[in-house]
Lab assay of single mutants.
Amino acid sequence: TFVALYDYESRTETDLSFKKGERLQIVNNTEGDWWLAHSLTTGQTGYIPSNYVAP
Rank of each mutant, 00 (worst) to 15 (best):
T1I: 15
T1M: 14
T1N: 09
F2V: 12
F2W: 15
F2R: 04
F2T: 03
V3G: 01
V3M: 08
V3R: 05
V3Y: 11
V3N: 03
V3D: 04
A4R: 01
A4Y: 01
A4P: 00
A4W: 01
L5A: 04
L5F: 03
L5V: 06
L5N: 03
D7T: 07
D7R: 03
D7N: 08
D7E: 05
Y8G: 01
E9W: 10
E9P: 05
S10N: 05
S10P: 09
S10Q: 08
S10W: 03
S10H: 05
R11M: 13
R11N: 13
R11P: 08
T12Q: 11
E13H: 11
E13Y: 09
E13L: 11
E13P: 13
T14H: 14
T14K: 13
T14R: 15
T14F: 15
D15T: 09
D15G: 15
L16T: 04
L16W: 02
S17P: 07
S17T: 10
S17K: 06
S17M: 05
S17A: 09
F18E: 00
F18H: 01
K19R: 12
K19A: 07
K19Q: 08
K20E: 06
G21N: 06
E22N: 04
E22Q: 06
R23W: 14
R23S: 10
R23D: 05
R23H: 15
R23N: 09
R23Q: 13
L24S: 00
L24M: 09
L24N: 00
L24H: 00
L24R: 00
Q25I: 15
Q25G: 05
Q25K: 13
Q25T: 12
I26H: 01
I26A: 08
I26F: 04
I26Q: 03
I26M: 06
I26W: 02
V27Y: 12
V27F: 13
V27N: 06
V27P: 05
V27S: 07
N28M: 11
N28W: 11
N29C: 13
N29R: 14
T30Q: 13
T30P: 09
T30E: 11
T30R: 10
E31M: 15
E31Q: 14
E31P: 10
G32H: 12
G32Q: 12
D33M: 13
D33L: 12
D33K: 12
W34K: 11
W34H: 07
W34P: 06
W35K: 04
W35S: 03
L36F: 12
L36T: 04
L36E: 04
L36K: 05
L36P: 01
A37W: 01
H38P: 00
H38C: 14
H38I: 15
H38E: 10
S39M: 03
S39L: 05
S39K: 06
S39N: 14
L40G: 03
T41Q: 10
T41V: 14
T41E: 14
T42G: 04
T42V: 01
T42A: 03
T42Y: 03
T42K: 04
G43P: 01
G43I: 01
G43M: 07
G43L: 06
Q44E: 12
Q44H: 11
Q44V: 07
Q44T: 06
T45V: 12
T45K: 08
G46C: 02
G46D: 00
G46I: 01
Y47L: 09
Y47C: 10
I48W: 00
I48C: 02
I48G: 00
P49D: 05
P49W: 07
S50M: 08
S50T: 06
S50P: 08
S50D: 02
S50Y: 08
S50I: 06
S50G: 07
N51Q: 13
N51F: 10
N51I: 09
N51D: 10
Y52H: 08
Y52E: 01
V53G: 03
V53K: 02
V53Q: 02
V53M: 07
A54Q: 12
P55I: 10
P55Q: 11
P55H: 09
